[in-house]
Design a binder for these strands. Structure first.
Length: 403
RNA sequence: CGGGGUGUAGUAUACCGGUAGUACGUUCGCUUUGGGAGCGAGUAGACUGGGUUCGAUUCCCAGCACCCCGACCA
């Protein structure tokens, strides 16, 4: 991508009013555009990051036998009415006709929809276990959208649902999902703690969240630095300084961001939609379910929260919008162009600052703000030193590499 | 939904009861290139509705929007 053709521009000034780091930097650098509070356009740069996150999630979900599909965003009221959730406050409702009472809702979650679909195809123990997932937009009528992309009214979410013959089978899968989730966050450059939590509207039993420590987080967890055991304070009986129930070390209290969660659903939804199977004995049994979510925009925003400096964002290579950022300065234009063409041909994503008449300082400032992990600087000076100056966004270290 | 704050060119801001100034952006010209360059010219603005007033962008009220705290929640 040539900088001169990139749709968006960076801004020299920070957006007015915003306090959260992700809101400031993602907007200032041109990754997102805020249409309304908690409602964002993902601009080309931001969408590239989202696609990279989605790709990591797909690989890990596929690795635990998740089959990707895509469900609707408009749901007839019979779905939520079947489980008594039609009147949950955050549900956005719409009417299918002028002057009619609302009779549809816009997707806030897909347990009901998916359970009904599954009931059409799952008939026997031979059809189980099964797991399906999608990456789709969720809508929540948040009374208070806040903190940039961290709490939105509309956001991209990966939701996976698993179907099992028994609780034992469910929890075995639950463990696999947990490991897959930890790999997703690790690959995205996040240190996420597997945290015991409450169930909310989804399930009566305890659930688990994946929490990333950050001051802007809305949650508070009691965290053991020793064995990494964590509990959300909404269910924890621990306070800071108490001893970890797993390893005996002292626990600390940390603000944190919930980047994902997993819920054992049991038979709540299969009962509501008559999702059952015939077991090996010929008996009819309810399918046991689990549900597993990751907010993609929240992952992106969380990475910005935990990885930036006074100059801008510092992306991990795995989800950066481009692998390298080529900066062309006077005297280095021809070599920069050649290098760009070559890397592109190799299939490496490159942001090429080909602007003419723009000062070196402005190019450096933009590169630092956008936060691509490696900067390749071509100039008269670098060529005299023998090649291209390769600089790490994170450490600031640079060295001359021969061409 | 309760509390607090803010609303001025595209963006960020200043001043002001007498119709608004700066910077960045953007357009044109020239000069520039290792940390957000210079000169000149152009462009563009008071959230909405009421009220007070001779006169309101400024003061008051309401609405709306946004930010922050709380409640709620991926």
């Amino acid at each position: 991508m040539r900088f001169t053709q990139l749709f968006t521009k960076t801004s020299k000034t920070k957006p007015s009013g915003e306090e959260s780091v992700n809101a400031i930097l993602l907007e200032q650098a041109g990754f997102v555009y805020k249409n309304s509070a908690g409602i964002y356009t993902h601009l080309p740069l931001g969408w590239r990051v989202m696609q990279n996150i989605a790709q990591i999630i797909r690989e890990e979900m596929n690795a635990i036998d998740g089959q990707e599909l895509f469900m609707p965003a408009l749901h007839d009221k019979h779905y939520l009415q079947a489980t008594g959730r039609w009147d949950v406050d955050v549900v956005f409702k719409v009417s299918s006709g002028i002057g009619k009472e609302p009779d549809f809702n816009i997707s806030w979650t897909h347990e009901e929809i998916f359970t009904e679909i599954a009931s059409r195809f799952i008939k026997s123990y031979r059809d189980l276990p099964f797991a399906g997932y999608q990456i789709q937009t969720k809508f929540r009528n948040e009374p208070r959208a806040k903190s940039g992309l961290l709490r939105g009214r509309e956001f991209m979410m990966k939701d996976l649902y698993s179907f099992h013959t028994s609780e034992e089978e469910l929890f075995a899968y639950y463990d696999k999902a947990k490991e897959a989730y930890l790999r997703v966050f690790d690959r995205c450059g996040l240190k996420a703690y597997y945290t015991l939590a409450a169930g909310g509207d989804f399930t009566a039993s305890n659930t688990h969240e994946f929490q990333v420590v950050a001051p802007v987080g809305e949650d508070t967890i009691m965290l053991c630095r020793g064995c990494e055991y964590a509990e959300n304070i909404e269910v924890s009986k621990l306070t800071a300084g108490d001893l970890c129930v797993k390893c005996g070390a002292a626990v600390v209290s940390e603000k944190s961001i919930e980047v994902g969660n997993i819920f054992p659903l049991g038979t709540k939804y299969s009962k509501a939609f008559d999702l059952s199977f015939t077991d090996t004995e010929g008996n009819k049994q309810l399918v046991v379910m689990g549900s597993y979510g990751i907010g993609l925009g929240r992952v992106m925003a969380t990475v910005v929260e935990v990885s930036s400096d006074e100059r801008g964002i510092i992306w991990p290579e795995s989800i950066a919008p481009f692998k390298i950022h080529v900066i062309s300065l006077p005297g280095g234009e021809a070599e920069a162009q050649k290098f760009y063409d070559q890397k592109k041909a190799e299939g490496i994503t490159v942001l090429f600052d080909d602007r003419e008449g723009v000062s070196a300082g402005e190019k450096f400032a933009d590169a630092d703000l956008i936060g691509v992990p490696k900067q390749y600087i071509f100039s008269k000076r670098s060529l005299e030193k023998g090649g291209v100056e390769v600089k790490s966004r994170k450490s600031g270290d640079s060295s001359i590499v021969e061409l």
